[in-house]
Design a protein around this nucleic acid. Structure first.
Lengths: 217, 217
DNA sequence: TATTATTTTTAGACTTGTCTAAAAATTAAT
DNA sequence: ATTAATTTTTAGACAAGTCTAAAAATAATA
């Protein structure tokens, strides 16, 4: 069994690993958890003894298979709770993160299995992120950033890169929600802004926005 | 804001206070939390500084109004979660306690308000215990123990005194559930056992059982 | 009321998780 | 390939919450 702190470290390493092939640096973990490098070193030693990470001094860490599954299970719980909050308790997608951050540490396999069933075995959370299955496997789809679409191309909005409540509320205001079809009408060269069509309406989108919206063609 | 440990102490004191007029002793708290008296003294000092308990050395503690409300809120959360587990996630009443014990510490007023609404604003948990309202008020009904009923009297099963899973599973086996009508057909003098009628069936009930079932006439 | 028994508190220690400051190792740059 | 900059680790300290053992206060009893 893992402490709350250990679980948070595991989750952080898990997220940092997706995208980088090499070991995760002490500093990267410290930054992600808003703590000090020395604290990270201490905790890494403990996690290493518990066989969830592989640790070589000065070389960073990687999750073991056991560690990866453990972390995926925490992420699974986090995302299932997010779905629950939105679907059953009328939370909006920008309100769920902090509460799910607490709920993900509740220990009860039955609770999660039943919650999964209650929600109809969802595959993605409210931000479009995939929900790992019981074995810790993740079904990644080939989503791309809106900013990579060319003129006259279109696709469906399937996720966000930035899930800060500021960004999510901005999307709400612009009526941009997951599942909607977006067509690129124009790409401005000088500021990389986009003119898009969504719901039959024309909309102007800045580069920053386009860099944080995932599309599936 | 209170730590997990502080919340557990508050809850313990809250439960111990209902029933005894005087201050709650260090030993009583230690026993209830399965910890040592010295640990209790330490924590009591902290709670006293936080103004949730009134503490006079060697005289035990009492909750302040603020402390009472804080504790009632934790109990409220615990019992609402129990209802959720039974009503929405198909837990049986003997499985909910440990999970609710974890869930009661989740901090999010919106979560609890929405959960309350989802459940249809329940007034009692699966064991018949009343759910405190948002202000910490509890609606106590005049329930009595089954063992206090006389021959030929009857009433409705409204709660349990012992909520151990052993007792609850025993009641399940005997098909004794909350809401059912029970009539005392006979009281045996030599062992205080009861012969009762429930669901049109005759049943023999030991003194121990009768001492742990609440009835409302 | 004196004495014994019990309860409660204090004192000091330990664990977990964190921190700062300094030392050691690695990486980057001249 | 040295030197400089950065990263990482170590050493030592601190707060929270717990414990044991001993001291102090209260309660019970003869």
């Amino acid at each position: 069994m893992f402490t709350l702190s250990e679980e948070n470290y595991l989750k952080a390493i898990y997220h940092l690993e997706s995208g980088s092939k090499k070991g995760i640096s002490t500093n990267a973990i410290a930054k992600s958890l808003e703590t000090k490098a020395s604290s990270v070193t201490d905790m890494i030693k403990k996690l290493s003894e518990k066989e969830v990470v592989l640790y070589i001094k000065y070389q960073g860490v990687t999750l073991t298979e056991f560690g990866r599954k453990t972390a995926a299970n925490i992420v699974r719980k986090h995302r299932l709770w997010e779905v629950f909050l939105v679907e059953k308790l009328n939370f909006s997608w920008d309100e769920v993160h902090d509460v799910a951050e607490q709920l993900e540490h509740i220990k009860s396999p039955k609770l999660i299995n039943q919650l999964d069933a209650l929600l109809g075995f969802p595959t993605h959370d409210p931000h479009g992120d995939p929900i790992p299955d019981k074995e810790g496997n993740v079904n990644t789809i080939d989503k791309i950033l809106l900013s990579t679409l060319h003129k006259d191309e279109s696709g469906f909005c399937v996720g966000v890169n930035d899930s800060s409540s500021e960004f999510l509320r901005f999307l709400d205001k612009k009526k941009i929600t997951l599942g909607k079809k977006i067509t690129v009408l124009e790409k401005e060269d000088f500021d990389d802004s986009l003119s898009i069509e969504i719901d039959g309406e024309k909309l102007s989108i800045s580069k920053k926005i386009a860099n944080n919206l995932y599309i599936k063609k």
